[in-house]
Design a protein around this nucleic acid. Structure first.
Lengths: 213, 213
DNA sequence: GCAAATTAATGATTTATTCAAG
DNA sequence: CTTGAATAAATCATTAATTTGC
């Protein structure tokens, strides 16, 4: 095939458009780790991917940040907080054997779960990923110090479902090679989160009323 | 606040709709492993997703699909085959320092690269993932047995770009904890991919060009 | 009894591994 | 073999539980 990685690249690419116009700020002379202040690493000039609206993580002005946060619809800033109904359905599906739903399935599930609260496809995806991983991890942990009658954690007992009392090994066939196909949508981003990692954080003093859901 | 993980779960979930109508074929009375022929494990009604069997490296060119449309624009069955222009741009961005573009960036890049050939957001995403990982891997390999006249992979020398002669450590600050936010779109799915060696395929026949957007 | 401080869970990302197409 | 695609493992980050000090 004469692949030859020549990469001849006619220099005509950039004639088309400004494209992303990186700033090429050049990395600091020598920043081995300096993990802190990492926002410097992203010092591009990528046109306008950062909306003018997304201020530098400190929308202190006119804290219109929604006044009825919890309860129902996490107003676009927080992470998904599943309701019992959602959890219940997801767990049932999991117990039913679903381990890595494909795109269509995620879509359907999301559509249904959205009836009980705000949710996105990625939440469903992540949930299955995490749940599976953690079940496995838990199982492994049990296998190590197993002197413990398999308690059959039985997350919920939603429906009789007749689980036959025997825990269904779940048997996660490793690497099933699915063919999911999804696209990235990239909603908002930047900000709304705060990397509190180092002392850099912006003085976490938000009361955060944990009104029980 | 007596929460206590009760998982009360009102049982009114299913009154709403048929939902996914899982078959709930009920697990076999006792199917501990049966790793093989596991399509029993997935006895859902949810559109079969994958067949058992893991025909290992058989690669016996069984001429898969009749009309191999691998000509140029993978009509929707093959994997992305980047063009030189696309690779060039991506590599430049990479060299520029971009390591994990966020949603918006992926969107922009995809939009631009689509001028040179069919491409989706996930391709861009994967490219960066793979490229980063493999660069790192390559680097590590070199550091270990560096008596192996390095091929100087030097992917390309696209543009002078003035790299200051000094290789920019790349500085892959581990775990940068960005805040990407993307959603799954789940375009087409269900096969349309090869998944060869499977006869059961439901013979989906909706072309459904993914591109869109 | 509350509210801050601490811990436990778990949602969201990134990295490492693996499979498979060309 | 190279590399796109996909999954699993590791880890970060945030929210809910819980504990603790008034």
């Amino acid at each position: 095939m004469g692949s030859m990685k020549v990469h001849q690249l006619a220099r005509g690419f950039w004639e088309h458009e400004p494209f992303l116009t990186l700033g090429f700020k050049r990395l600091r002379p020598l920043a081995p780790k300096l993990a802190n202040t990492d926002h410097g690493a992203a010092s591009f000039d990528l046109k306008s991917f950062i909306r003018p609206d997304s201020g530098p993580r400190n929308l202190a002005s006119s804290d219109e940040k929604k006044d009825s946060p919890q309860g129902e619809t996490h107003p676009g800033g927080t992470r998904w907080n599943p309701t019992q109904e959602q959890i219940g359905i997801l767990e049932m599906l999991y117990r039913g054997g679903m381990r890595t739903p494909n795109g269509q399935q995620i879509e359907d599930i999301t559509a249904q779960l959205s009836r009980y609260g705000k949710i996105e496809g990625k939440n469903v995806f992540y949930w299955f990923q995490n749940h599976k991983a953690r079940e496995r991890q838990k199982q492994k942990r049990n296998s190590l110090g197993l002197s413990h009658s398999p308690r059959t954690p039985s997350p919920v007992t939603i429906i009789s479902l007749d689980t036959r009392g025997e825990v269904e090994r779940e048997e996660d066939s490793p690497y099933k090679r699915k063919c999911r196909s999804w696209t990235f949508e990239c909603l908002e981003l930047e900000d709304s989160r705060s990397c509190r990692e180092k002392g850099d954080r912006t003085l976490e003093l938000f009361p955060l009323h944990p009104e029980g859901r």
